[in-house]
C-alpha cells in the first residue's frame, strides 16, 4: 500500500492546524474581549467557509493566484512561490478553509470565562497580558484543543478545494481523499477500501476525543 497520500494529508493537516493556532488565538481574543468597528463583518467573513461551497473558494483562489494574475506573477518573480497546484497553495487554502473550525471553539471558550473572574484578577492588580497568559489560556485549554483537533480533522477531510486548487500531483497535492477518489475511478477497490477505512477510523477517533473532552466535567446527576 502506498502511504504517501496519508503522509501528505497528515503533513497538510498538522501544518494547517499549527498555523491556525497562531492565527486563531489572537483572532478569538480580539473577537471576544475587544470592541472595534467592523467586528461583525470580520466574524461573518471567518464563518464563510462553513456555508460556502469549496468550489467558490477554489474559484477565487485560482483567479487571484494563477500565474496570469498580477499577484501570482509578483509572488512567482519575487519569492519564487507558486500557489496554484502546489503544496504551499494547498496549505494557504486549507488555512482559510478551516479557519472557523479553529476560531469558533476558542472564541466560545473565551466567552464562557466568567466576567467576575477576569475582573477579580484585574482589581487584584494584574495586567491584561498576565491575565491572558495565566488565566484565560489555561482555562480555555479544552476549547483550544477542540479547535486544534477540529481544524486538523477538517483539513484531513478536505476534498473539493484540493481538487480545484491542488489537482492530483503525487507527493505534492495528492492527499488521501483525492487518492480514494482516484482509486475508485480506476476500480482499485481494495486500495480505495483501505484508504477509506483508515480515514473513517481517524475521523471517528478524533470525534470520540472531542466528546470525551467535553464530558469529563459533567457528572451524572440523579433526577
Amino acid at each position: 500500500m502506498d502511504w504517501s497520500p496519508f503522509l501528505l494529508s497528515f503533513k497538510l493537516a498538522l501544518l494547517t492546524a499549527l498555523v491556525l493556532l497562531l492565527i486563531g488565538i489572537p483572532l478569538a481574543y480580539a473577537l471576544s474581549f475587544v470592541n472595534w468597528r467592523g467586528k461583525r463583518l470580520v466574524q461573518a467573513l471567518i464563518a464563510l467557509p462553513m456555508v460556502l461551497p469549496p468550489t467558490v473558494l477554489g474559484f477565487y483562489f485560482l483567479l487571484v493566484f494563477s500565474p496570469q494574475s498580477s499577484i501570482g506573477t509578483f509572488l512567482n518573480s519575487f519569492f519564487d512561490l507558486q500557489l496554484v497546484f502546489s503544496f504551499s497553495g494547498l496549505l494557504l487554502g486549507s488555512i482559510i478553509y478551516s479557519l472557523p473550525f479553529m476560531v469558533q471553539p476558542i472564541q466560545n471558550a473565551f466567552e464562557q470565562l466568567p466576567n467576575d473572574m477576569l475582573q477579580f484578577a484585574r482589581v487584584l492588580g494584574k495586567g491584561k497580558w498576565a491575565i491572558f497568559k495565566k488565566i484565560i489560556l489555561p482555562n480555555s485549554v479544552k476549547g483550544i484543543a477542540t479547535g486544534l483537533v477540529l481544524s486538523f480533522a477538517h483539513t484531513l477531510g478536505e476534498f473539493g478545494l484540493v481538487l480545484m486548487i491542488g489537482g492530483n500531483i503525487p507527493n505534492e497535492t495528492r492527499v488521501a481523499s483525492i487518492a480514494i477518489y482516484e482509486s475508485v475511478e480506476l476500480m482499485q477497490m481494495e486500495q480505495a477500501n483501505q484508504y477509506a477505512l483508515i480515514l473513517l477510523l481517524i475521523s471517528f477517533v478524533v470525534l470520540v476525543f472531542i466528546y470525551s473532552l467535553g464530558n469529563n466535567s459533567k457528572r451524572l446527576v440523579r433526577w
Binding site: D116, M117, F120, L124, G125
Partner: peptide
C-alpha cells in the same frame, strides 16, 4: 487604569481561578 489602582475588591460570587 483598573490594575494600577491600589484598590482590591472581593466579589459576591467568589471569582477564583480554576486552574490554580
Amino acid at each position: 487604569p483598573i490594575d494600577k489602582r491600589s484598590v482590591a475588591m472581593v466579589f459576591q460570587d467568589q471569582a477564583l481561578f480554576p486552574n490554580m
